[in-house]
């Protein structure tokens, strides 16, 4: 009976939606390393090192993007920390966050 139902009304596959999301993510990455200034991959790695001192994150949880529109350039840094484990030294995620912000502070002024 169920097979008959599935034959008449095939379940909708969502694989195209998965393909779309995967492509968006991988191309955003590749465009940065291809079109961006040479220092972006190095910057990304260093940021990752800093963040990793406080929180256990995977490399794909930190994304940087340089957007140019007309005169202005915007450097966007996204760090996904939901579900990330804090290093035992700093058990609190909020504490880790402020530690990272502090660590990034000199880079901003410099």
């Amino acid at each position: 009976m169920r097979r008959l139902f599935e034959m008449l009304f095939p379940p909708r596959s969502e694989s195209a939606a998965i393909a779309r999301e995967r492509l968006k993510i991988v191309l955003a990455h590749e465009r940065v390393s291809r079109d961006g200034p040479d220092f972006l991959p190095a910057l990304q790695q260093e940021l990752l090192d800093v963040v990793s001192r406080y929180i256990e994150i995977r490399p794909d949880m930190l994304r940087i993007n340089l957007d140019k529109s007309g005169e202005t350039s915007l450097l966007e840094i996204n760090v996904e920390i939901d579900g990330a484990k804090a290093k035992s030294a700093t058990p609190d995620i909020a504490e880790a966050k402020s530690a990272i912000v502090a660590a990034l502070e000199p880079a901003k002024s410099g």
Partner: peptide
Amino acid sequence: VNRGEMLTVED
């Protein structure tokens, strides 16, 4: 495409 198995033109 209609069955959600293939990227759409818009995608």
